[in-house]
Design a protein around this nucleic acid. Structure first.
Lengths: 184, 184
DNA sequence: ATCTCCATGTAAAAGGTTACATGATTTC
DNA sequence: GAAATCATGTAACCTTTTACATGGAGAT
């Protein structure tokens, strides 16, 4: 069986939801998968074309009077199977996420201590902003009445983001302290 | 002033250490930056060429009798300045790391609960392996007598890895529990 | 009138991986 | 003699971003 890239599987997954157009896919990703996945129109439309070519989905043109037409994509049986097959497969290897702050820190010898401290403080602030965003989204999910099933999975991914962000904030605090007590 | 990509700055940073050849750069990254940065020869050699073109480093051919020649790269004043300028700049925006397990989990509705559980258990195992690797590296650094200054920054980046990995493991445990108590 | 949102796309450039090619030296 | 390590590099390919282009509908 053919293997596709993760972008393709992400789109196949989204096509199992209410989102059926390229535009709607982009919106769903920006709204709900934003903290662990992103994608541009430059990928979406060509990938949709590929998905149709491969017989994983079908296009239907939907016309609403007084509105421009739009292309709606519907998964085929083959498409759903392909998605399920991918879902089952274990994550092959943990990704090595490139981390700019760690890269800069690693070369910290070449910089005055005070500047590294500023860098870390700024980073911590960014992390705290992110955490607040996550908490705001969480509240939004809990107050809005989505189906329980839908919000269940969404909240799980948010929880991951909250936990790892908190861990990173703790690290920042701890690291800053090391710098401030370091007497050189 | 020109802006370069992070790969270029990473190499400039490494050139401030003892590593002077393309091969040595690759090794340093694989050994010490492995958990937050990676790079292939396909990037290293062309980037070194660019760095020389831009006057950020100079090549010197080092000949040792009985050994093949090698190209050693030395930062110029301009190169060091360029590096320092980059080090000072705050991390513009937190990266959105693509996370395959979260993507799969997000589409978990389309899969039997037991299969999702397997996925998570496997992921947790991978995380635990990673954590052990980090702890082994930490021990290695502490026992080996590097200079204090060098190991200081190295240990900081390792600490980040340990903390965020632990947070991810906790999340796995917590999520698995939610699945196992979920009665559907 | 203008702005925002809905909606679809393409082309060029940038960034990165993989596979290949080569050859010396060192270790087992 | 074989395998691992040192050492340098390129070409093809894949993925992703960015910038551009277009145009209707609805709101202010």
């Amino acid at each position: 069986m053919k293997k596709y890239n993760d972008t393709t599987y992400a789109i196949l997954g989204i096509l199992t939801t209410e989102c059926k157009t390229g535009y709607a896919i982009k919106q769903l990703i920006d709204n709900s998968l934003n903290h662990f996945w992103k994608i541009s129109y430059g990928q979406i439309y060509p990938t949709l074309k590929l998905i149709v070519q491969e017989g994983l989905a079908e296009v239907r043109t939907s016309s609403t009077p007084g509105k421009p037409d739009k292309n709606e994509y519907y998964l085929t049986t083959k498409g759903l199977e392909e998605l399920k097959k991918w879902l089952e497969q274990p994550v092959e290897q943990l990704p090595i996420e490139r981390n700019e702050i760690l890269l800069k820190l690693f070369f910290g010898r070449n910089q005055a201590k005070e500047k590294t401290v500023l860098l870390l403080q700024n980073y911590q602030q960014e992390l705290e902003n992110r955490l607040q965003t996550y908490e705001a989204i969480e509240k939004g999910i809990l107050s809005h009445n989505h189906t329980v099933e839908d919000s269940f999975y969404w909240l799980l991914t948010l929880d991951y983001g909250k936990r790892t962000t908190k861990a990173a904030i703790d690290w920042c605090e701890c690291t800053l302290e090391k710098f401030l007590t370091k007497g050189d």
